[in-house]
Amino acid sequence: MNVQSDLDSRQVTVTVNGKQESLEVEGRTTLADMLRQEFHTQGVRVGCEHGVCGSCTILFDGEPMRACLLLAVQADGHEIKTIESMADGNKLHEIQEAFSEKHGLQCGFCTAGIILSVSELLERCPEPTDEQIYEILGGHLCRCTGYQQILQSVRLAADMLLEK
């Protein structure tokens, strides 16, 4: 087992919210932990840490994925977006506005991940059916809202983006 003494940290170059950085990470560090601790993007919530709750969802090369089920080293050469990329200064993104308007959150722990998943859905599919919205929301646990306000928020966000 001489392998254990040969642990290597690796240099990775990753683009987070449009900014490219190089840093050294240990092989076992999850992407969620790297984003929180090294990039201070603490909108990446760490809930269950095994892919069930969806609160750490980020966009990896534009597709929603669990940051807790990716290793930081796997982000090398890839582009990550977190909730911090959505607002423009103090101006909220339309999806954030819609969640605020329709009370699509209470405690807010799950919200960042949901908004990222929804942003990908609405980009791919600007006029989603309820079924398509349910499919995306199914990947996120929310214990506050009962999902109805979230559904309304997504519908409103779709309308707002279409009118933009």
Partner: peptide, 30 residues
């Protein structure tokens, strides 16, 4: 590395197993 190694593909089952330490490979081949 033989049986000391585990293959990491999408990781949607392997990563939880690693995090919960159900799987403890000394080498991960991504």
């Amino acid at each position: 590395y033989g049986s000391e190694a585990k293959i990491l593909a999408g990781g949607q089952s392997m990563m939880p197993m690693l995090s919960m330490r159900i799987a403890r490979p000394s080498v991960l081949v991504d």
